[in-house]
Computed example of a mutant assay.
Amino acid sequence: MFFHKSKPSIKENADRNLMLEVYVVRDKMAAQRKLIASFREVDELTKAQLSVQAGLFDFLHREARIRQVSGELVARIAAAHLEENQ
């Protein structure tokens, strides 16, 4: 009992993976929007891909809210993501 090492819970690991996926999808969506803004004409496939990314982001964001991901975890993931992209 004294030297019991606490392991991260399954929920914490799943929440961490979910938040990482949210940030990856958000970045892809932002990159696609930036790319579309630079074109004069955009084909339907590119528009559809952007719609799929937006839908996936909405789904993941809603899932994070339903799972009640802690604000502390979101802050840590956001800070790590900002450091990575600078």
Results as ranks from 00 to 15, higher is better:
residue 72 E to D: 12
residue 46 T to H: 09
residue 86 Q to I: 01
residue 72 E to K: 02
residue 45 L to P: 00
residue 52 V to R: 05
residue 81 H to S: 00
residue 45 L to H: 07
residue 86 Q to G: 02
residue 32 Q to H: 07
residue 35 L to T: 09
residue 61 H to V: 09
residue 17 N to M: 05
residue 47 K to V: 04
residue 80 A to F: 00
residue 55 G to K: 11
residue 55 G to L: 08
residue 80 A to V: 03
residue 81 H to L: 03
residue 31 A to S: 06
residue 52 V to F: 00
residue 39 F to I: 12
residue 31 A to F: 00
residue 9 S to I: 06
residue 23 Y to F: 13
residue 76 R to M: 02
residue 60 L to R: 08
residue 83 E to N: 05
residue 14 A to Y: 09
residue 82 L to R: 03
residue 5 K to L: 00
residue 35 L to E: 14
residue 15 D to V: 08
residue 54 A to E: 12
residue 4 H to D: 13
residue 40 R to C: 10
residue 70 S to N: 08
residue 12 E to Y: 12
residue 53 Q to K: 08
residue 61 H to W: 14
residue 8 P to S: 12
residue 64 A to C: 15
residue 27 D to H: 08
residue 27 D to R: 06
residue 66 I to A: 13
residue 37 A to I: 01
residue 75 A to D: 08
residue 53 Q to R: 07
residue 32 Q to F: 00
residue 55 G to V: 07
residue 55 G to Q: 11
residue 2 F to Y: 09
residue 4 H to M: 11
residue 45 L to Q: 04
residue 84 E to F: 03
residue 21 E to Q: 06
residue 80 A to E: 02
residue 79 A to H: 06
residue 7 K to A: 14
residue 11 K to Y: 13
residue 11 K to W: 12
residue 66 I to H: 14
residue 44 E to I: 11
residue 76 R to G: 00
residue 57 F to T: 04
residue 18 L to G: 12
residue 12 E to A: 15
residue 34 K to F: 10
residue 85 N to P: 02
residue 36 I to E: 14
residue 21 E to N: 01
residue 2 F to L: 08
residue 61 H to E: 13
residue 62 R to E: 14
residue 11 K to G: 08
residue 26 R to S: 01
residue 37 A to P: 08
residue 67 R to H: 12
residue 11 K to D: 15
residue 33 R to L: 15
residue 18 L to M: 12
residue 66 I to L: 15
residue 59 F to I: 05
residue 67 R to C: 07
residue 33 R to S: 15
residue 82 L to N: 00
residue 79 A to L: 03
residue 63 E to T: 13
residue 2 F to S: 15
residue 31 A to H: 01
residue 49 Q to G: 09
residue 74 V to I: 15
residue 50 L to S: 12
residue 56 L to V: 13
residue 13 N to V: 13
residue 3 F to L: 12
residue 20 L to I: 07
residue 78 A to N: 02
residue 43 D to H: 09
residue 65 R to L: 12
residue 7 K to S: 12
residue 27 D to K: 07
residue 15 D to H: 15
residue 41 E to R: 14
residue 57 F to K: 00
residue 52 V to K: 03
residue 17 N to V: 01
residue 29 M to I: 05
residue 25 V to H: 03
residue 27 D to W: 01
residue 53 Q to C: 02
residue 26 R to H: 01
residue 69 V to W: 07
residue 13 N to H: 10
residue 17 N to P: 03
residue 1 M to Y: 09
residue 84 E to A: 03
residue 27 D to C: 04
residue 58 D to L: 13
residue 9 S to F: 00
residue 45 L to G: 03
residue 18 L to H: 13
